[in-house]
Amino acid sequence: MPVRRGHVAPQNTFLDTIIRKFEGQSRKFIIANARVENCAVIYCNDGFCELCGYSRAEVMQRPCTCDFLHGPRTQRRAAAQIAQALLGAEERKVEIAFYRKDGSCFLCLVDVVPVKNEDGAVIMFILNFEVVMEKDMVGSPAHDTNHRGPPTSWLAPGRAKTFRLKLPALLALTARESSVRSGGAGGAGAPGAVVVDVDLTPAAPSSESLALDEVTAMDNHVAGLGPAEERRALVGPGSPPRSAPGQLPSPRAHSLNPDASGSSCSLARTRSRESCASVRRASSADDIEAMRAGVLPPPPRHASTGAMHPLRSGLLNSTSDSDLVRYRTISKIPQITLNFVDLKGDPFLASPTSDREIIAPKIKERTHNVTEKVTQVLSLGADVLPEYKLQAPRIHRWTILHYSPFKAVWDWLILLLVIYTAVFTPYSAAFLLKETEEGPPATECGYACQPLAVVDLIVDIMFIVDILINFRTTYVNANEEVVSHPGRIAVHYFKGWFLIDMVAAIPFDLLI
């Protein structure tokens, strides 16, 4: 008679799926529990143990900040960024110097990925580790590398530091407007667009060049630039800015003055950032001319202004700041037409079709709590990747769950009947059967004279019903998954307890 339990259901295979997918890609990662103190490590794979030199037993239950890997060259700011990422709910990448158990130093890129439950609360953290440099290539500990984003994938490793954006290309926007319009339909740009040429040739750093990471940081200074100062900065030398009595002219307006920039070969870094931020506020060169004239017309309804409409929906549905990093990277690809469009465009503009998908598509409701890094690593669709929660398995109709209350009560009843059979069957065979043979035949009273025979008949009927119930009862397979398919249940029961239950259900007393 089957006594099969499996009270692990309803099970959740999400954690096993993450481990299996990460292991298949030869990654070095740990999984931490966000619900406990210090976000203790609950799993670390073999790749991480080989990377740091510690065994799994030495890593388990330690804080996922990996303070046991810190050393003299470990930056405090990087460690603080990892700790801050564990307090938030967004994906974050941090470069930090770690030390192995043998004392060797290596520069590592740590990717902190939160995993949320159905309520939107962070319950786990996945920390992925990628070695960037070994100890002989690690720089000085005073050099802070965590304020910069990861290198873009479309640049060669040897040319990542030679990417320079020439400031004269930004200063000569109005001069290039006529050349853009003359391109017409034969050019790649839309009317009114501004073409910015980027020099990728390796050259020595000069005062006129600005690194790509500095251009990325310009967006942080746009908020500090007032509207009046932006307007004066875009007017140009024809209309000098008016300053109040006793007030000095704005240095932001002076930063885009061609006369002032041409007199000296070098520009201050602050002026460069502010000038680029001011130019980015204009949607095209037409807006710059309109600002000089004193009238700013409404933005025209053409394809170039609607190019950012799908980007707005993608940004609203993005799951991490990696989408913004990807957008900034692609927006700086050289030799393309940049349409400086305000994100607050007309909502009635139709979304044009684009061959290049900048932001990841909208994630469906079932995966809105899973970050983009987890979705990318697992390579699963929205119909396959579940949320991290207890999910009731989908069972067929008329199927009994093996952990249901009805099955528990039924098993206790069958257990009592088995005990009765084990006690009274030998007793009936030894004593009652002998008395029946010696006594007179009682054929007239039937079952009324033999109450134990009636009980034995009921017990046999219950055993037959138990066999039928076992054909529709779920079970737990070797992978700790609840199986509810009727065919698989029948095959599993035939290979197991079916023969024993059938022999126990045969009414031998009635056959004798």
Score class of each variant (00 low, 15 high):
F340H: 14
R77G: 10
T371V: 15
E50F: 05
G306N: 05
M60V: 12
R271G: 11
F129P: 01
V196M: 15
G226D: 05
L378D: 01
V8T: 15
S250E: 05
L170S: 14
R56Q: 04
S318V: 08
R73Q: 13
V384F: 09
L248T: 09
T74A: 01
D287C: 06
G71W: 01
P258A: 14
A172L: 01
S322Q: 14
R301K: 08
R20C: 07
T17V: 14
L212P: 12
R27E: 04
P361G: 09
K364I: 07
V112T: 09
A85M: 03
L173F: 14
V59C: 04
S179R: 11
T174R: 14
S178H: 06
L167I: 14
K166C: 06
V196N: 11
G103D: 06
V36Q: 05
T375E: 06
I358A: 07
K135Q: 07
D213K: 14
E230G: 06
T13Y: 13
Y54S: 01
L338A: 11
R252N: 05
A253T: 07
L200T: 15
G238T: 03
N33H: 07
D16V: 09
G47A: 11
W154H: 10
T13S: 08
R176T: 06
D46L: 05
T162K: 12
V195D: 05
G6V: 13
P386A: 05
F98W: 03
G158L: 14
S322P: 14
P151F: 15
K364V: 13
G294D: 11
T329W: 04
K332V: 01
E230Y: 15
V94E: 05
V325D: 14
L69F: 01
C52Q: 01
Q335Y: 04
R56D: 01
K166P: 05
L385G: 05
L248S: 11
P297D: 12
C64T: 06
T65F: 05
D199K: 01
D321A: 14
C64G: 14
C52N: 01
Q25W: 13
I359Q: 05
R326L: 05
S264C: 11
R252M: 07
N12I: 05
E372P: 05
M133N: 06
G53F: 01
T375S: 07
F98N: 01
G71S: 01
A360K: 04
R62W: 07
G103S: 15
R181L: 08
P202F: 01
S140N: 11
D119R: 06
H309K: 05
N38H: 15
T329Y: 08
A204F: 15
S320E: 07
A79F: 03
K332L: 01
V194Q: 01
G345P: 08
I288N: 14
S264Q: 07
S354I: 04
R301D: 11
C44W: 01
Q25D: 06
E274P: 07
L385C: 04
E134A: 08
K166E: 09
P386L: 01
R92K: 11
R326M: 07
N146H: 05
G226C: 13
P151K: 15
R301P: 10
I359V: 07
L296C: 07
M308K: 14
S250N: 09
A253E: 15
E58P: 01
A244F: 01
V132H: 06
N146K: 06
S261L: 07
V59A: 01
P114A: 01
